[in-house]
Design a protein around this nucleic acid. Structure first.
Lengths: 211, 211
DNA sequence: GGCCCAAACGGACCACGGTCCGTTTGTATT
DNA sequence: AATACAAACGGACCGTGGTCCGTTTGGGCC
């Protein structure tokens, strides 16, 4: 009776998959080691062999946990990303709720630009498994779309949202800031200008003001 | 007297570097073999070893010529890219000169979107050495900037140009078209809408039309 | 406690990109 | 034609990402 296999397959309303104790321990070990190594060497000096050695596990285990190098980097990014999402959903204005939509949108761009630039190496190393796959990207797009709705912008909102976020992607920003040497403020101002054109409000002050 | 070393260093007004006959021959051999292999296997099934073998040269030679796998892919892209630039500079309208600027801009987007999608695998494989490095990207940006000038758009034109091109980059397009399954026409329409907002012309017909 | 087995482990192994360096070859000079 | 040398060549070699498979282990069940 108590051997009913359904008990284990549907233990509770908890749909989270079971994870063995050693697996969980190793995940922590690896994540910590990886974070430390990224901090002290930079993302693209971290090799999977070295990571395994440092965490004291076999290489196979690393790949079992994270699938690939990109997956590992994505997992590292995950912490940051969750924090960012939390800030957007329930943090203080203007990024969080409470400010008018346009201000929130501009704050989102600012925040996104800076964090993207800050973790550029990690994001690059994460590749396809990175922002795009882990839902990070779709969350941002969804939120922009939401703000555009509030701003009563009409058109193909999903597309418009992606178009607004595209100039904030790593390759573009690195080209502008690192290679072309443009100051971050200028890039940001350019983005704000783009946003205003898209939402149809020529300037911060509504039409009628000077300039 | 005739041994004056300057004679060889400055042979003529021809500043193009000399290239030994065997080097040139091998470049052709490699480029042809690479193109064939990409065509029949797809870009990311082509290995440098296999390419060297097929072209009948040593592996060292491949890297001497192209520097890296990315460099090779970029070299393959080069043909396509030159053709595209030629079409923009001196091809038939609306992509080439002769059409009104807004039409040219929209044609540019259309053309760029399609060719990018068509060569997506190659572009991805080219990575940093690809479009961005080989000047392809800067040419497009320059031209968009030029068209924006003709459209009397004011603002930070270099930034605006990049922002318009960003949604046409490979990762964005692949996400939308290949993963989300959006039809190309819709993506294109979305881009056209973005352009109109940026240049400040709400629709094809000037304000006053029925929309 | 003892049994059982799915899950996790670990490290030998493989494939591929990239480098190195001793050898060959094209070309300019005489 | 002979000489000289820079450039090009080629393949052995190395590091790294990723796989495979025989071994170990956590934890539910009796």
């Amino acid at each position: 009776m108590t051997s009913d296999p359904a008990r284990r397959l549907l233990p509770l309303a908890d749909q989270a998959a079971p994870e063995r104790a050693d697996a969980a321990r190793n995940r922590e070990l690896l994540l910590d080691a990886a974070a430390a190594m990224v901090a002290e060497l930079g993302a693209d000096e971290v090799t999977m062999d070295a990571l395994a050695a440092r965490a004291g596990v076999g290489k196979g285990t690393v790949f079992r946990r994270f699938g690939s190098r990109g997956g590992l980097m994505a997992a590292l990014l995950d912490h940051t990303e969750r924090a960012w999402q939390a800030a957007v959903i329930s943090g203080p204005p203007p990024l969080g709720p409470g400010a008018p939509p346009l201000e929130r949108l501009l704050a989102l761009g600012d925040s996104r630009l800076r964090t993207t630039l800050q973790h550029a190496a990690l994001i690059r190393a994460a590749g396809a498994e990175g922002a795009r796959a882990s839902g990070a990207h779709s969350f941002a797009a969804l939120h922009v779309r939401h703000l555009l709705t509030q701003l009563e912008v009409d058109g193909d909102l999903p597309l418009l949202a992606v178009a607004l976020l595209a100039p904030l992607e790593v390759p573009v920003l690195e080209q502008q800031v690192r290679l072309d040497g443009l100051p971050v403020e200028r890039v940001l101002a350019g983005w704000a200008d783009l946003v205003r054109r898209v939402v149809g409000r020529p300037a911060v002050t509504p039409p009628g003001g000077a300039t």
